[in-house]
Write a protein that binds this DNA or RNA. Structure first.
Length: 419
DNA sequence: TCTGGGGTCCTAGGACCC
DNA sequence: TCTGGGGTCCTAGGACCC
């Protein structure tokens, strides 16, 4: 057993907006998310489309996030809806603003569109007699304003707050629960199966099961040196997390050393090898545009293409001085792909990613600069200007008008989902 | 009944340098 | 006729999160 008196002891709230997409879509239609069966799917017209969110009553009959549209029974009392990303973002922002009434911005961390953390250690006493009663207030204000229910986990660190929210709060009448270090043996260690625990999924669970580890308690009490030997730093993390230990602080976010920007698509149909180039072009244009908006150039770029059946090809390239225009990037990636891909096969997924960014510096033209490259950069800067002023899809390549182009259909989508 | 999209972090092993 | 050792950078690929 650890001596937790040496550990971080904060008052962290982890707030989760309940069935967020599905609840918002319900409310938009004037329905109650707690009694309506409604699913938000990526695209109602595609039977294989994934369920992005389901209301609690629909979950109760076995439909969950990640289910497929064709698994949902066709019944009059079940609503199937396309996403409204704009609305979701707008509400998410509105709710976060409420949270910021209770903490300074540096004590707030937006984890995803429907989840955020607050470190209320220094401020809860201004509003309530305990973190728990602050959580109740916050819940109520969110509900009164936008009619969205929320679940809140309270913990001595970020991990305990998150786990108490994930595991416990959802099943309590108030939707609030509090985990402190002394609760670790009773609450954390009983978690089973292992994949219920944040950071452990099927693969890791299977590996641990092979060692005879089936509960978080087993994991917490398994000799850490063996975990370290077999899983490296992840093994040590598993051990610490199983003991409820997590020293990260919202105020000191560790600088992500390897930020990346990317775009991945599952195509609307099978593509032949040559059609892929159009999509590659579109993706590179978009991600490069996003990079330049941040004033960054990638020094590492990668592409990954998936066959319609199984497997695929992936490749990464590095250029220490940075990739300076889309023309260079597309050619490099396509040269590689056209050699490696098999012309007779069909393709269904394509992903690109840029990373290891360097800041954009004022560049001096040298006598030896390739005049074509300089010209391409100038054109791109003008296009950027137009895109920033009129929207990023206002300009597209001629090739996007080909049948293989995806931009026209995707225009107006947010994160690939309907706006 | 094919397929969501955007991320982060870790490791093994090869290449290269001194 | 056996073969140093440490450091750094790079790519491929795995695993997980929402």
């Amino acid at each position: 057993m650890y001596d937790y008196s040496y550990c971080l002891n904060r008052d962290i709230l982890c707030v989760d907006l309940k069935s967020f997409f599905a609840s918002v879509s319900c409310i938009e239609k004037g329905l109650d998310p707690l009694t309506t069966k409604l699913a938000v799917v990526a695209d109602t017209k595609r039977p294989g489309s994934v369920v992005l969110a389901a209301t609690p009553p629909l979950k109760a009959i076995g439909i969950k996030t990640g289910s497929r549209l064709f698994e949902i029974p066709q019944r009059k009392d079940i609503y199937i809806i396309n996403p409204s990303m704009k609305k979701y973002i707008q509400l998410s922002t509105q709710i976060s603003k409420i949270a910021l009434d209770y903490v300074a911005p540096e004590d707030f961390h937006q984890y995803s569109i429907d989840e955020f953390f607050m470190d209320v250690s220094e401020s809860y006493h201004l509003f309530a007699h305990s973190p728990f009663s602050l959580a109740m207030q916050l819940q109520e204000r969110i509900f009164n304003l936008v009619h969205i229910r929320s679940t809140i986990g309270i913990g001595s660190n970020l991990l305990l707050a998150k786990l108490s929210m994930d595991i416990d709060a959802k099943h309590t009448p108030l939707g609030i629960s509090e985990w402190r270090y002394e609760d670790v043996p009773a609450k954390l260690w009983s978690i089973q199966p292992l994949r219920e625990m944040w950071g452990i999924n099927r693969r890791t669970e299977a590996k641990l099961n092979k060692k005879g580890i089936f509960t978080v308690g087993h994991l917490a009490n398994y000799p850490v040196e063996y975990l370290k030997r077999d899983y490296g730093v992840i093994g040590v993390d598993l051990h610490l997390h199983a003991n409820g230990i997590d020293e990260s602080m919202i105020r000191q976010p560790h600088q992500a050393y390897d930020k990346s920007l990317g775009k991945s698509q599952i195509l609307m149909r099978d593509y032949s090898m040559n059609e892929l180039k159009t999509v590659l072009n579109e993706q590179v244009d978009e991600v490069y545009y996003r990079s330049r908006k941040l004033n960054l150039y990638p020094t590492r770029i990668s592409v990954s293409v998936g066959y319609a059946d199984m497997g695929g090809v992936r490749k990464q390239f590095t250029n220490k001085t940075g990739f300076m225009n889309t023309y260079v990037i597309v050619n490099l990636l396509w040269d590689y792909l056209s050699q490696r891909l098999e012309p007779d096969r069909l393709y269904r997924t394509i992903t690109i990613s840029f990373g290891k960014f360097i800041p954009n510096q004022i560049k001096q033209l040298s006598l030896f600069d390739d005049p074509f490259q300089v010209k391409t950069e100038t054109i791109e800067n003008h296009l950027d200007f137009i895109r920033m002023k009129y929207g990023k899809n206002i300009v597209m390549r001629g090739s996007s008008l080909l049948n293989s182009g995806t931009l026209r259909e995707r225009k107006g989508l947010i994160a690939g989902h309907k706006a």
